[in-house]
Amino acid sequence: MSMIEFHDVQKYYGDFQALKDINLTVEAGETVVLIGPSGSGKSTLIRTINGLEPIQQGKLIVNGYDLADKKTDPNKIRKNVGMVFQHFNLYANKTVLQNIMLAPKIVLKRGDKENRELAMSLLKKVGLESKADSYPRQLSGGQQQRIAIARSLAMKPKCLLFDEPTSALDPEMIDDVLNVMKDIARDSSMTMLVVTHEMGFAREVGDRVIFMADGKILEDDSKEQFFDGEPTNERARQFLSKIIVHK
């Protein structure tokens, strides 16, 4: 069974159509990179997948649940589909360790000992064991983002969504976060959907590259085809040449 299936999905904000005729299937275990100019709908698309944005038409099936169906509780999906945000969204009133342990404790009823051990091992994985008792505001952006990734991983999700995880970071912090993401992509069988402009990441660990503009998917290629061959779409070609020259 596929992890994510979009069937003719349309999404509107009032009169503005943010997503147009989206058809997309992501298989379990795939790492998919979404790129495109700002306002192209890539963040909106990724937010629909865990129900943060409702869709108005079409079918959107995530982990077997249809999000277009009003009777579907988005929480059932969110238990298995984590999300990492541009601005981290760590709980400001909780310490780092509490941030990671809260949802597993409440939602999964994970026992305290097991919960703490897993949280500490995840902190080790992202290189921030020493920050367990800090509050998010005491940490740099890059550190906060790594904690946010650890928080998502603590739920042992089948799928992890990244919404521009490095866009709000200072340049020297970006690599720390990308390295954590690359480790996850290599070591786990998790499905990953990543909105990013980091082409290095796409090249190294991506399986597929999707290019969006004006709410449409214009290009859906394998990594090799996208980077080594040439995108068939003119806008995708232009966009690609711009970011690559820029780097």
Binding site: A103, L108, S152
Partner: peptide
């Protein structure tokens, strides 16, 4: 972002309200 973070983390609306 606090509510979005909590909900995407698996907490329900009321749990997000209460804890976060």
């Amino acid at each position: 972002g606090q509510m979005e973070g909590a909900q995407s983390n698996g907490l329900s609306f009321w749990q997000s309200m209460r804890y976060i």
